[in-house]
């Protein structure tokens, strides 16, 4: 049973003048699933590649179970690169067995695991087919099996859900959930934020090579701006102007959406609304992950 946490500790990487990662840090604990979000080019893939040792960092360290990740530990990581790829002309079972052996498994053991995973991912009938003869969805399943074949202690998956059909998304979610429940730290990047919100225990938002927000979905949502929806039919257009910490986002037919920052007092807003006449609705909403993400990555666009 894997027990360790994966820690990425202030890794930096530059390509000439381009800073790809700037002291990026993140921790995924045992039995935790972390969603890694950020716009394209923010540094997610680079972070994962460094964690895998496919790339070398300029500085910083990657640790598993408090020890720097070395070759032995690396071979226990399950990895799914963003650019999917296996040998197109190799048979499914041979391919998985080969990868298992490269990860240090005995031949027979790798063969058993390959059989088990093809069965689990409903690929039993395609075992002896060349990969290129499989549908795209099935190829993705083989790719997942390739990441799981050696019973990894850590899972690092780059965009595992992209290009999957809804059924495959369910299969993938279930399998990842099972791995997490067995104590494996799971980290995956995704642009499908609803999926991240639904599956992940924690979310890390990355921008320009830095982690700018990291916490449980609840934590992130409650730390974000609060919105109020007020329905006061008799209120004039400017009823909320001048209230401290309040910004009017929209006003239409007596429906007003307000955005409150930390210094705003919602009770003061309520009183101001009641002063205009009847109030039919006064509700507080938390931003969705999508909104949080949008704000996080669009804030101060030119630093």
């Amino acid at each position: 049973m894997p027990e360790g946490a994966l820690e990425i500790d202030r890794i930096s990487k530059r390509y000439g003048d381009v800073v790809a990662l700037d002291e990026m840090s993140l921790t995924v604990r045992s039995g935790e699933m972390l969603g890694f979000v950020g716009s394209n080019g923010a540094g997610k893939t680079t972070t994962m590649r460094i964690a895998l040792g496919v790339l070398a960092a300029d500085s910083g360290e990657v640790r598993y179970d408090d020890a720097p990740v070395d070759r032995t530990i690396r071979s226990r990581i399950g990895y799914m690169p963003e650019e999917r790829g296996l040998y197109p002309k190799m048979k499914v079972l041979d391919q998985l067995q080969y990868l298992g052996e490269l990860h240090g498994m005995e031949r027979a053991e790798a063969n058993r695991a390959a059989n088990r995973w093809t069965e689990r991912l409903e690929l039993s009938e395609r075992r002896d087919d060349q990969l290129q003869k499989l549908s795209l969805g099935n190829q993705q399943r083989v790719q997942l099996a390739a990441a799981l074949i050696h019973d990894p202690a850590v899972l690092i998956l780059d965009e595992p859900f992209s290009g999957l059909d809804p059924v495959a998304v369910e299969v993938m979610s279930t399998v990842l959930g099972e791995m997490r429940d067995r104590g494996v730290p799971v980290v995956f990047s995704s642009h499908q934020l609803e999926l991240v919100q639904r599956l992940c225990d924690r979310v890390g938002i990355v921008r320009r090579g830095r982690m700018i927000a990291d916490g449980t979905v609840e934590e992130l949502r409650s730390s974000g701006p609060v919105r109020l929806n007020v329905h006061a039919p008799k209120a004039p257009d400017d009823w909320a102007e001048g209230l401290p910490g309040v910004k009017v986002e929209s006003h239409q037919n007596g429906h007003t959406t307000l955005r409150l920052d930390e210094q705003a007092d919602d009770q003061q807003v309520l009183r101001a609304a009641l002063d205009t006449g009847p109030v039919h609705e006064f509700s507080r909403t938390r931003p969705s992950l999508t909104e949080l993400f949008r704000e996080a990555v669009t804030e101060e666009p030119d630093e």
Binding site: R49, L52, V54, R74, G85, L86, H103
Partner: peptide, 10 residues
């Protein structure tokens, strides 16, 4: 075929 990245991870 990009398989090289899978290989080089181990």
């Amino acid at each position: 075929s990009r398989v090289v990245e899978v290989l080089l991870s181990t």
